[in-house]
Amino acid sequence: MRYELTDLRLFLAIAEAGSLSAGAAAVHLTASAASYRLKNLEFALGVPLFTRAARGMELTAAGTSVLKHVRGLFAGIEAMHGEIASFSKGLKGSVRIVANSSSLNGFIVPSLSRFLSAHPTINMVVEERPSTTILAAINDQEADIGILAGPVAATASDVTSRRFALDRLVIATPLDHPLLAHAAVPFATVLDRDFVCMDKASSNTVFLKEMAHQTGKGLSIRIHVQTFDAVLHMVAAGVGVALVPRSIASAALDAGRIGAVGLTDPWAHRELSLVTRAGDLSPLVSAVVDLLLDDPVVMASRLSKG
């Protein structure tokens, strides 16, 4: 069975792009050269890796299996390069992180900004995803580190889980809102209000809709915006209320721009977990894990009773 790393890199690029021409361009090959290499790879493996259709290239069942192993192979190569570089030039390389919106905006971005400023040879790829998809991303080797809401079951043997942070969801309101007469309310009683939300694909919005659906009530959304800063600005202006992590609302609360009401629902108190693949981590990934866990704000949240 003979094939080259270039063939596997091409396969990965086509799988991620869903297109032969786009995959070829990503690895700097012509479409004809890419087609030739792909056919040779499929011949060497003895199975078709893609079905070819007008809308693009779709992985076969065998191709999906190969994709997982190829991602692992290149993750290993990158880890090897990182380890070798760490002996002579300090940490160097790239780390991939997937996280839900709460942990990303409330904890991770401030930590990483300080880390990256101090380590100019390190790059980060950071992607927001719903918590329910993050374990799969780690298992499929799409990312090195994942941070999600909720504890991770002990049966998830392919990953190592660590308690990351504690946070709680609150209802952000304008300063003169009648809800501020209460310290905490059931979520179901807030659903007759107009909401300001993150964009439709945001994990925060997906979670909000799911919790509203569980109450059997509808959700009135006045506007979708792209950032939590924009959400809080709209709330302060009286556009509506918002479901946000207290870690994100704290600056606006301290500045007196908005109010906040707690929720009595158990799901509003959230434990965030940091997950990595089981086994030894590269020095670079280990350094980023330690950075995230040892951030003073993150550590303080773990000591808080919420």
Results as ranks from 00 to 15, higher is better:
Met198Arg: 15
Ile171Trp: 02
Gly216Ala: 09
Ala184Arg: 12
Phe187Leu: 01
Ala156Trp: 07
Ala184Met: 11
Met198Lys: 13
Met211Trp: 10
Val159Trp: 11
Ala184Gly: 06
Ala188Phe: 07
Ala184Pro: 13
Ala212Arg: 05
Thr189Ile: 10
His233Pro: 00
Ile223Val: 11
Phe207Val: 01
Pro178Trp: 15
Thr215Gly: 03
Arg163Glu: 06
Ala242Cys: 04
Lys200Asn: 10
Pro174Gln: 08
Arg163Ile: 04
Cys197Asp: 03
Val225Ser: 05
Leu166Val: 09
Val239Asn: 10
Leu179Ser: 06
His224Gly: 00
Thr173Ser: 07
Ser202Asn: 10
Thr205Glu: 05
Val190Asn: 00
Lys217Ser: 08
Gly238Lys: 08
Asn204Ile: 01
Phe228Ser: 02
Leu179Ala: 12
Thr227Asn: 01
Phe207Ser: 09
Val239Gly: 02
Thr155Asn: 07
Arg168Ile: 05
Thr173His: 14
Glu210Ile: 08
Arg193Thr: 04
Leu179Phe: 13
Thr160Asp: 10
Val170Ile: 15
Leu175Ile: 13
Val185Leu: 10
Cys197Lys: 07
Ser157Ala: 05
Val170Gly: 07
Leu232Lys: 02
Asp167Tyr: 07
Gly238Arg: 09
Ser220Pro: 05
Leu219Ile: 05
Arg162Leu: 04
Val239Ile: 15
Asp199Gly: 04
Ala181Leu: 03
Leu191Glu: 03
Leu243Gln: 07
His182Asp: 04
Lys209Arg: 15
Ala212His: 11
Pro186Cys: 02
Val206Met: 11
Ala156Asn: 11
Gly216Pro: 13
Arg162Ser: 03
Leu180Val: 11
Arg193Phe: 02
Ile223Pro: 01
Ile221His: 04
Val225Gly: 03
Thr173Arg: 06
Arg163Val: 05
Thr173Ala: 11
Val231Ile: 11
Phe195Gln: 03
Thr189Leu: 11
Ala201Ile: 13
Arg222Thr: 05
Ala172Trp: 13
Phe207Ala: 09
Arg193Glu: 12
Ala183Arg: 14
Leu191Met: 09
Arg163Leu: 09
Asp194Tyr: 04
Asp158Val: 07
Asp176Tyr: 14
Thr205His: 13
Val235Glu: 06
Cys197Ser: 13
Val206Asn: 02
Ala201Gln: 10
Val159Asp: 06
Ala184Glu: 15
Ala184Cys: 10
Asp192Asn: 04
Ala183Asp: 14
Phe187Ile: 00
Lys200Glu: 14
Arg168Trp: 15
Ile171Leu: 13
Cys197Met: 14
Ala183Pro: 02
Thr227Met: 05
Thr205Asn: 01
Glu210Asn: 04
Ala156Cys: 08
Ala201Arg: 14
Val241Ile: 15
Met211Cys: 08
Thr205Phe: 06
Phe164Gly: 02
Val239Ser: 08
Asp199Thr: 06
His233Leu: 07
Lys217Gln: 14
Ile171Ala: 00
Gly240Val: 12
Ser157Phe: 12
Ala165Pro: 12
Asn204Val: 00
